[in-house]
């Protein structure tokens, strides 16, 4: 069966750390970092990248359009 694997790239300087993507993610991939960006926000990042399925739920709810989503189908 094909397995789907995804990855997201967060524009960390545009991100305001609102946490909505973390809440929207069905696979608990995202979390807010302990580091800060130039504006002083705890930006979102992939804490658990292996669980990402590339569903783009995070990107749909992101108010600042700072998430880019990629997805591949793996054959095993």
């Amino acid at each position: 069966m094909a397995k789907i694997k995804g990855a997201v790239v967060v524009d960390t300087e545009r991100c305001k750390g609102c946490d909505l993507c973390v809440v929207a993610c069905p696979s608990d991939v995202l979390a807010l970092s302990k580091e800060l960006n130039a504006k002083g926000y705890n930006f979102s990042y992939m804490e658990n990248p292996d669980a990402c399925i590339g569903c783009a739920a995070c990107a749909y709810v992101c108010p600042d359009a700072c998430i880019t989503v990629y997805k591949v189908k793996l054959q095993d």
């Binding site: 995804g6 524009d11 300087e13 545009r14 305001k16 750390g17 609102c18 946490d19 909505l20 926000y41 590339g54 783009a56 990107a59 749909y60 992101c62 108010p63 600042d64 359009a65 700072c66 998430i67 880019t68 989503v69 990629y70 997805k71």
Partner: peptide, 23 residues
Amino acid sequence: LVHKKTDLLTDVPMHYCPGCSHG
């Protein structure tokens, strides 16, 4: 690629508060 910011949305960071529905 599955989803990315449309080019029509400028690169200017929005002034809205974090999590605002306006964005």
